[in-house]
Simulated assay, not measured.
Amino acid sequence: MFHHSTRMLVAGLCALAASVPAQPVLAAPAGGPPPPAPHTAARALQAQTLADLTTTMKGEAYAYAAYSLFAAEADRQGMSAVGKLFRSTAQTELNEHLHEAAALAGTVGSNAANLRQAISGETYEHQVMYRRFAEQARADGDLGAAKLFSEIAADEGRHRDAFRTALTAVTNGRGAVPAPTKADVVAVPAGLPKVKATRTRANLDTALHGEALAHAKYMLFAAHARQTGNTALARLWEGTAKVELHEHLAGEAVLTGLVRTTRENLRTAITGEHNEETTVYPGFAKRATGVGDTSAVGYFRNTAADEAKHAAAFQQALDQLR
C-alpha cells in the first residue's frame, strides 16, 4: 500500500464509508483473481476493527490508483521494468489487499444494498463535501481547484440520480437501469502542485482517497451485479467507476502534483510501504488483538509482511536506477 501525506489519517468519513450488509457477498472484478470467501461474521467485528478495515480499503484503493499513474510515468520515461513493478504492485493492492479487507468488513451486499450505500456517498459528496471544498479553495485563491471541485460536485449529483433510478428498477421493476456516462479521461503527466493553500492540498488528498475507494467499490459492486445476472447494473457501476478514476481522481492528481519523476515516485512509495510495514498495520493488528478479532489480526499481519516486500522491491528498483 502507498501512503500520501495524511493518507491513513485523513479526517472525517470517506464519502463511501463501508457499510455492513446482512448477507455480504464479494465477487472479483473482471480480470482479477477471485477474492476470499466473504467473512460471514462481519457483524461480530468490533467497531474499531471495522473502522481500521475501512481505512485500509481507502489506502489500498489509493495505492492502486497512484501506482498505476506511476507506472504510466515510468513507461513514458522508458523505464519499462519499473513500470511493470508499479503495475504488478498496484494489482496486488487492489485484487488481494483491498478484496480481503472488503470480505472481512462485509462491504459488498445485495444489488439494492450496494446502490443504497452508493447513493448515500454520492449525496454527501454532491451536497456537502465538494461544495465545501470548492468554497474553501475559492476563498484561498486556488481557483482551478474550486472549478474542479464544483464540476465534480455536479457529476456526483448525476451519479446519485442514476443510482436512485437503478434502485427503483432493482427493487420494484419500474423503469430501467440508466446507461453510464462516458468518462472524460484526464492525462496525468509528472508535474508540481498547481495549488498553493495548505487547506486545498488537504482537501485534494481527502478527495483523491474518496475517488479511489469509489472506483474500487464500484468495480466490486459491478462484479456482484454480473454474478446475479444484472448486466445493465454492472455496466452502470463500471462506467461510473471509470469516471471516478480516470476523470475525477486524475484531475485531482494533476492539481496536487501526485506524479513526479520515477525516482521521486519510487522514494515516495518506499516511504509509504515502510510506514505501513512498521507502524500502520502492526497498530491495526494490535488493536484487533485487544478486542479478539483474530481474523482481522491475521489479515493485518500478512498485509504488513507484503508491504515489507513491496518496499524492498521498490528500493531495489531505485538502486538500479542510480
Rank of each mutant, 00 (worst) to 15 (best):
A304L: 02
A101G: 12
F163R: 08
W237V: 05
R138Q: 12
Q316H: 15
A74T: 04
L50E: 00
G175Q: 03
P282R: 07
E238K: 09
A166N: 08
R131N: 13
D52I: 00
K84N: 07
A308C: 04
A134M: 03
R87Y: 06
T168D: 07
E307S: 03
R76C: 04
H99E: 07
Q320P: 00
T278Y: 05
E273M: 10
Y281C: 04
L9F: 05
T107H: 09
A30Y: 13
A90L: 06
T56D: 11
D293E: 02
T55R: 14
D140H: 07
V297A: 03
K242N: 08
G210C: 10
L94R: 14
E100I: 00
Y281Q: 04
Q136I: 13
A288C: 02
E244T: 09
T168F: 00
T231D: 13
G59C: 09
N302Y: 06
Y281N: 05
A139G: 03
R76V: 04
D306K: 09
A183N: 07
A304P: 00
A42N: 02
R132F: 12
T231F: 06
A202T: 12
G210R: 02
R116S: 15
P38K: 00
A312W: 04
L148N: 01
T289V: 01
V177L: 08
A105N: 14
S150W: 03
L9W: 05
G210F: 04
I152E: 04
A81F: 01
T262K: 04
T278A: 13
S110V: 06
S19M: 13
P189L: 08
A190M: 03
A113D: 15
T165D: 01
G173V: 10
S19L: 09
I270Y: 08
L236Y: 07
R322E: 08
A30G: 11
L9G: 10
V291A: 01
Y130W: 06
F314T: 01
G257S: 03
A28H: 12
